[in-house]
Simulated scan of single mutants.
Amino acid sequence: MSKQEIQEVRKHQIIKDDEIDLIALIKTIWEGRKTIYYSVGVCVFIGLLIAFLSPAKYTASATLLPSSEKMSNNLGGLGALAGMAGVNLSSMMGQSEGIPTEIYPQVINSYPFLNEFVHEKFHFEDYAEPISIYDYVVADTIPTLGSQIVKYTIGLPWTLKDAILSSKDELEKDIIEYGVLNLSEEEIIALDVVFELLEVDVDDKTGLVKVSVEVDEPLLAAQYVQNAVKLLQDYVIEYKTQQVRENLKFVQERYVEKKEEYEHAQMEYFNYKDAHRNIVSERMDPEFQRLNDVYDIASTVYKSLAQQLEQAKISVKEETPVFTVLEPAKVPFEKSSPNTKIILVLSVFLGGFIGFGIIFGKILWNNIKKYFN
């Protein structure tokens, strides 16, 4: 190694005797400043391309406050004392007002919820009339004329193969009942679209639930959030009131049956009584006594069911959870992404990091080459 090369190595030797030479470090960075400028410029240019060419996204959200848990009346003052001590006796004794907020994300990502959501109609900018997400996905998957030509020319062998296999599968589906969900390709695509759209954040401390959506249409984002909140409320209400609604349905069916029996027994009893009004021994008549007993029993059962029916209706009202929408869904006016400022800042940092890496990489590579030579 020549004397000049040795001096060059020492000149760029930043670490000397286990210490960092700041002067050598600054000189090395200053001499490679053009590399840093070029690197930062290239990264900023790429960042601007990303910022201006990426489709604009708009975010809409809504904040919910589910009804708080209610304490059983039998607890009395014990419930209040337990609440002051930080103990939730209502949840321990099964007296919660609805589905725990912690599982709201699982509720929204469940198949029943997503399947109902994809068939709700929304106003898309490309369509004059509101359509569902499923119909929108199906419209996007309709093959174009060019793809159809390719399908029946170059891809004809594969087209015939797929047709034969699909016909066999359809025949098997007609013969065999699997008893499980068998979704079509369009349904899977639609469910995936909704699955990626809806986001649910639950604040464990306050219990607030935030539902947000980010799409490329501001009006559509607000529609998605508003509909998701409504479906979530309906789902929680249906879950919480399922038992009392089943009890109401049962009582109502029995009430209708006993009402008919009561009216029939009443009609027979009073008709018989009117027909034998002038007979002195009417109260000694066994038929009269039988009709009277039947009427009394039917009347008692009917009145009891009427009371139970009203109580069941009240129970449904009492068990129905109440949601408070603290922040309703609004149509966003400013795009949420891409964020040009953040992209530029990250581009500058990335460009500087790459520039420094190139400078020190060159020095390390030159030193390795010189030492090996």
Rank of each mutant, 00 (worst) to 15 (best):
Y38I: 12
I99G: 04
S39H: 07
V209M: 08
L53M: 06
I359C: 02
E287H: 11
Y255N: 05
M71K: 13
A62Q: 00
T28V: 06
V294M: 13
S68D: 10
G83N: 14
Y136T: 01
P112I: 09
E268W: 04
P218K: 01
L309S: 00
T144Q: 11
N373P: 05
E196L: 15
H276A: 09
D18R: 12
T144H: 14
E170V: 03
A329R: 00
E177R: 11
S337Y: 02
T35K: 06
A190S: 08
F122M: 04
Y127T: 12
V331D: 06
F288H: 13
F250K: 14
F288E: 08
V213T: 12
S90H: 03
Y38W: 05
P100S: 11
I20T: 03
Y255H: 14
I20D: 05
K210L: 09
W30T: 13
A222V: 04
N278L: 15
L25G: 00
T300C: 10
L219G: 06
L22Y: 06
S347T: 08
Q95H: 10
R283D: 08
Y371F: 14
E19L: 10
I23E: 09
T59P: 01
P130H: 05
F288T: 12
V87M: 04
I26K: 07
A306R: 08
K11R: 14
Y224M: 12
T300E: 13
P130F: 03
P328M: 02
I29K: 02
F52Y: 02
L22P: 08
L344A: 04
T159H: 06
K230S: 12
K240N: 15
D203F: 07
T241D: 00
L219S: 13
T241I: 05
